[in-house]
Design a protein around this nucleic acid. Sequence first.
DNA 1: CATGAATGAGTATTCATTCAT
DNA 2: AATGAATGAATACTCATTCAT
Lengths: 213, 213, 213, 213
Amino acid sequence: MEGGLGLGLENYRRTISETKRAAILTAARENFLKGGYSRAAMAEIARDADVSTATLYKHFASKEALFTAVVEAVYENIGDPGLGNIEGATAREVLTRICAIYARQQFEGEMNGILRIVIAEVPSSPELARAVFERGVTARYEQFRAALDALVARGDLKPHDTATAVRMLGGMVKEFVVWPALFMKDFDRPNDIDRKIEACIDAYIKMHERISK
Amino acid sequence: MEGGLGLGLENYRRTISETKRAAILTAARENFLKGGYSRAAMAEIARDADVSTATLYKHFASKEALFTAVVEAVYENIGDPGLGNIEGATAREVLTRICAIYARQQFEGEMNGILRIVIAEVPSSPELARAVFERGVTARYEQFRAALDALVARGDLKPHDTATAVRMLGGMVKEFVVWPALFMKDFDRPNDIDRKIEACIDAYIKMHERISK
Amino acid sequence: MEGGLGLGLENYRRTISETKRAAILTAARENFLKGGYSRAAMAEIARDADVSTATLYKHFASKEALFTAVVEAVYENIGDPGLGNIEGATAREVLTRICAIYARQQFEGEMNGILRIVIAEVPSSPELARAVFERGVTARYEQFRAALDALVARGDLKPHDTATAVRMLGGMVKEFVVWPALFMKDFDRPNDIDRKIEACIDAYIKMHERISK
Amino acid sequence: MEGGLGLGLENYRRTISETKRAAILTAARENFLKGGYSRAAMAEIARDADVSTATLYKHFASKEALFTAVVEAVYENIGDPGLGNIEGATAREVLTRICAIYARQQFEGEMNGILRIVIAEVPSSPELARAVFERGVTARYEQFRAALDALVARGDLKPHDTATAVRMLGGMVKEFVVWPALFMKDFDRPNDIDRKIEACIDAYIKMHERISK
DNA sequence: CATGAATGAGTATTCATTCAT
DNA sequence: AATGAATGAATACTCATTCAT
């Protein structure tokens, strides 16, 4: 009984605590996005999250740690459906799926705004930036590269240096999707984005398709 | 005679003034690069430039104005040789020149570090970011596009949407040249950069060359 | 039990807070009086009040707000006994009471010094000056005028424009009590002040007494 | 010849110098009036007067000296017609003239604005305030008292303590003319001012006229 | 004699973090 | 476990005054 009660209390407390943690993360993200890392104020974050500064510090040891947690949360919250089964899909279909995922993820969770700050903090927090690069750039490429290798293995594409090729494809898509978003506040998916992406895919296929096809 | 003296004084003052202005800009650039916009302190910039804070403010009305001037100075100091005469050059040669200029400029004057800060300040100084985008991205593309159009006119390349194509090329090159530099402090031209760029050019040519060639 | 503890904490905090607030107000008043609004330094006020500047700003959002609070505190701390019951008092007695109150209040809480600063800040803080005028001049006249009206109603004084008359009386008293105090630091109640005031009262009675008396 | 030329040059220089001095005084007065003593900036005064700061300091050794000079200039520029010949004038006429002069002078040359600053600076510049009091208050009273004494000698008024009486009269007039002007920016002569002043004069005459009249 | 660039001490205000309760 | 008051160092910016030319 007592154990049950105790567990209940413990559970209750954990729930409260997690609720607060989430509230803090949300408030923090909003504040960081508003004016960058330095301009965000711990006191205001605490106020927005309806906790005291002391509680804030109980959850996150420092401003830097809080920001790191915010960044992580963004990546955790990105819905990543993966590429799914590519068995019966044409090369074009797979590439389209890849680019669509890429483009969509880039506009989720204010990813671009967060990216801006991570980039800004490179001189102060190089490790964070490296981690983000690893997770958001390198890792994604790995996933896509595997799909491309499968297409090659299957004979839909010519054998080629997929590691480099996927980056070239990514670079082209970024040109239209990420780059303007970094420089323009409130930049949103432009209307012609799908056509641009299609052009990138066309290029990719033209370069690497089996001639016979 | 008096005129001569007066002019002497004026010249003297102008020289002194310009020397100080340059010293301030250098000190400012270094300080901004060290920890971003917010962490840079006007007092320290003044100290590094061997002037008083008041003199600093005589030259630049505010921290923001100073940063803007730093950014402008970077763009002004970039040596831009232009593409030169492309009369007798092959398409590949022209493209190689384009990409080489692009890549080189990106590592001059700590361009990438400055870019980081400009991006970071997008929410606070959207106009500055827009201006940099205009000058550093859009304008460069214009120049390159003109060259590509010439190649098309000359019959070396198939007619194609050069405006989009130049961005795709730029995106690919950025992927190897700019993107890692944004995330990694002290990222310098990697060894295999020329091979990567060549791959991009290969892709471009493959897509748009005259079949007859 | 917990409620009791909580209340204890709250009480404790409130007490501390109010003590500090009072200390700040005192320190501020002294600093403002020393050299006027502009010369007073928030840092010195904080030091004199034995608090940090941050605490000072927790209590008062700005220098201007602090000064306003100082002015209000002066008016709140003035002991205003009111005129009391004037039933059995002669006109002369009532007038004497009026002038005595007026004169005494003017030397309480460094009123004259505060007045100097309020006047000085008219171009910068016209609303504050207007409020002080309302509270310290107009409102006092209202109170006194009511007493004079009673004397008229009672037949002790001839019917007359008491609104104007009370200002004339006030003007005469100010001439001896306030005006020199504005121009001379440490001006204190002069010895012959009561005689001067009596002369003013004589004048008032002479002008407005019932002839029959 | 040479002497003549030299004198001409000297004259020219003196003229220039005096022109500049006047320009400085005007610019200074405007700046002081705008926001009080502390907020006025020597650099801005110099700019407004079209001289260099060095020239400004050639003419006036310090900010304080400049302000003193501004105050003096105000008093020098007041047109003081004196009371004129009071030989054939009735007591009422003389009193009316006295009050008219008083009231008019108070609105010339931004006297009230200057007065505000002088009062504000009492703790910092007590001597200046004392001098202004001497010149603007005491001295004027002397002049008026002499006229009143003449009226007494002539038998138009009862013998009375004219020194005190003139202050009482002055106090009443100030109540309507000066006091509100101190507290309200841009307070200008109100419409009913003449009637108020007449009431003051009525009071004065009532108190001190020969009964036989 | 006039200039205006240069100074350095001073200003109000903010903020990440701690700690007594 | 939670609070919020308190800190003190730091920040951008200003100003009366001087001085080399």
